[in-house]
């Protein structure tokens, strides 16, 4: 019996020894290193807390969950995702935390436990404790308390004062108008002057033809100028009366543009065509027509204006003006 107990005891002891041996063998293969970028910072400065874990591939190591702070006076600003790299048969997991502290003094970062499991056996491995010195700004107590920066002065922008400017401009304009009205009133002058009606094109043309006749150009051997002026007057009239850009048109184009108008009066068409052809001959072919021909050309110009003009007839009983063509 004593032999049986001693055998059982031996089995238990050897079992415990073998499990512990496996654990310690793996624990030795897992290397954990925690370190800080610096051990001294100025209050509010940021630094990194680095963890490097080297482990065999087949072991799952669980990192501690660090959310807001590493210790009571050390805060985590940002947690970077873990970076895994191969290193021979092992893998190296690196994780970094951006930390800071707003309390001066000597702070301890505790050792964190990393749990791992091997063949259904769980164990932990701890990081080393670290210390961080947080310095504060030296304060000169002999001086009075002052702002870090003076109060910023910003100039006025247009958008801030545009309403005032617009109102001011309107007020000035109204004042100027009132002063002008007052002056006109005192001088006994009308405040609203009716706009002068635009002169009908035929009136301008007929007046210009009268002036041309009075200048006696062809009588003074200026036949070319006489016909140039005459055709210019007619072209300006055609523009005013028909809205055709006759100044930029050749004689042929003018006749073509006026075809509809002239086809209703063949006599007018013939005389106007003859006038334009005659004018072209004088202007571009050094033609010197007979004196009678010059007179006839001017008469043709008068006839063209008179027969194609639109007259505004004012009716005393009715404010609406009536129009009438000059066709006889």
């Amino acid at each position: 019996m004593s032999g049986f107990y001693s055998m059982l005891k031996l089995i238990l002891i050897s079992g415990i020894v073998s499990v512990t041996g496996i654990q310690s063998a793996y624990s030795q293969k897992i290397k954990l290193n925690a370190y800080l970028d610096t051990t001294t910072i100025l209050i509010g400065d940021q630094l990194k807390y680095n963890i490097e874990l080297e482990q065999p591939k087949n072991i799952s190591v669980k990192f501690p969950v660090l959310v807001d702070s590493l210790a009571s006076k050390i805060e985590i600003i940002e947690s970077e995702p873990a970076d895994t790299a191969k290193q021979g048969d092992n893998i190296v997991v690196r994780k970094r935390y951006l930390i800071t502290s707003f309390d001066s003094g000597y702070h301890k970062i505790p050792a964190y436990k990393f749990a791992f499991a091997i063949d259904n056996i769980r164990d932990t491995i701890s990081s080393q404790e670290l210390f961080l010195t947080v310095n504060t700004m030296p304060v000169d107590t002999s001086k009075e308390i002052m702002d870090i920066k003076p109060v910023m002065s910003t100039p006025f922008s247009f958008s801030e004062i545009k309403t005032e400017i617009i109102i001011g401009a309107i007020v000035l304009a109204v004042l100027a108008l009132l002063i002008w009205i007052l002056i006109r009133y005192r001088k006994n002058k009308p405040i609203f002057v009716p706009r002068k009606p635009q002169e009908p094109p035929h009136v301008t043309a007929l007046r210009a033809l009268d002036a041309l006749r009075a200048e006696k150009l062809w009588q003074n051997n200026q036949v070319k100028l006489y016909y140039t002026r005459m055709t210019d007057i007619l072209r300006a009239y055609i523009f005013g009366r028909f809205g055709i850009n006759a100044m930029e048109m050749t004689s042929e184009e003018i006749l073509s543009a006026l075809e509809m108008e002239l086809n209703t009066d063949m006599e007018l068409k013939t005389s106007f065509t003859k006038l334009l052809v005659q004018a072209d001959m004088v202007k571009f072919a050094k033609e010197e027509p007979l004196p009678q021909e010059n007179e006839i050309s001017l008469l043709s110009a008068y006839t063209f204006v008179n027969r194609t003009k639109i007259e505004v007839l004012s009716n005393p009983g009715n404010n609406t003006p009536k129009t009438e063509t000059g066709k006889e």
Partner: peptide
């Protein structure tokens, strides 16, 4: 024609 008119140029 023995002379040029604007129509010719155009």
């Amino acid at each position: 024609r023995g002379y040029v008119i604007p129509e010719d140029v155009r």
